[in-house]
């Protein structure tokens, strides 16, 4: 290939030099950032980061259940009293969640196509189980979000506990929560899903930094350790609530 530069205009002349195959027919054309595999990963990392922000904020809100029914119901009433910011946050979350999901499945499609014939003998040298089952844990989280919204936000599951009001006339969210977790099926499902979320995050948090290019080798181990600690903290924080209900620490009386 010769490149003749005349002023700022470039003229490319392709010359076939020997051989029969046309080596240029395989060369790619430019692609947009968001259609590239790296771009899609960056979207996964950024949306993942924002979703972790939500998970932490939601945990802080939930842990107020340990402060008693009044505080917890007042917090819920406060959120309802600011519908503007609440709906902006809700719509933002839905957009972020959908982007995260869309890119996950879009990348999975690329990955499945990249190895049409699989190995007969599979071996894994150092990849963590969390990193290998991101899609599986992710699908569990998706199902959980649907069930969780149907349960505590929309009141489709256990509607008999949904529309109670407390002594102050506020929506009795505390009552709904305790009744929900007294049901062993809902409590078990909740704990299982939160553990899956923890596993998802134990890879996701450190992976996010690698994807965004913030990964100095000397901090990599510390970062992975910190990611596991944060994931474990989030998991334990969420699980403590159904466990406290089961252990009669958080009660209706």
């Amino acid at each position: 290939m010769f490149c003749l530069c005349t002023g700022d205009r470039k003229v490319f002349i392709y010359l076939q030099t020997g051989g029969t195959s046309n080596e240029w027919e395989h060369m790619s054309s430019p692609q947009s950032f968001f259609s590239s595999t790296i771009g899609k990963k960056v979207v996964m990392a950024v949306t993942g980061f924002l979703l972790i922000g939500f998970v932490v904020a939601h945990l802080v809100g939930n842990l107020q259940v340990f402060l008693g029914a009044e505080v917890f119901n007042a917090y819920a009433a406060f959120l309802k009293s600011i519908p503007g910011p609440l709906w902006i946050a809700r719509i933002g979350l839905i957009v972020i969640f959908v982007l995260h999901l869309y890119n996950a499945f879009s990348l999975r499609k690329i990955i499945s196509a990249a190895r049409p014939v699989d190995y007969n003998k599979q071996a894994t040298v150092q990849a963590s189980a969390a990193s290998r089952y991101m899609l599986h844990t992710g699908v569990v989280i998706l199902l959980f979000v649907i069930v969780h919204l149907a349960h505590f936000t929309l009141g489709y599951l256990q509607p008999e506990h949904f529309s109670k009001t407390d002594a102050l006339g506020q929506h009795d969210v505390y009552y709904m929560l305790v009744q929900g977790f007294l049901n062993p099926v809902y409590a078990g499902f909740y704990i299982f899903c939160i553990v899956m979320l923890g596993i998802h995050l134990s890879h996701g948090i450190s992976s996010m930094f690698q994807t965004l290019g913030f990964c100095r080798p000397n901090v990599k181990n510390k970062l992975e350790l910190a990611a596991k600690a944060i994931a474990a903290g989030i998991t334990l924080g969420y699980i403590s609530i159904p466990l406290a209900v089961i252990a009669n620490v958080v009660t209706l009386s």
Partner: peptide, 14 residues
């Protein structure tokens, strides 16, 4: 661009 066009998969940091 070329890497993606060749049909290689994407990285999941494993």
């Amino acid at each position: 661009d070329q890497m993606d066009a060749e049909g290689f998969g994407s990285c999941t940091n494993q």
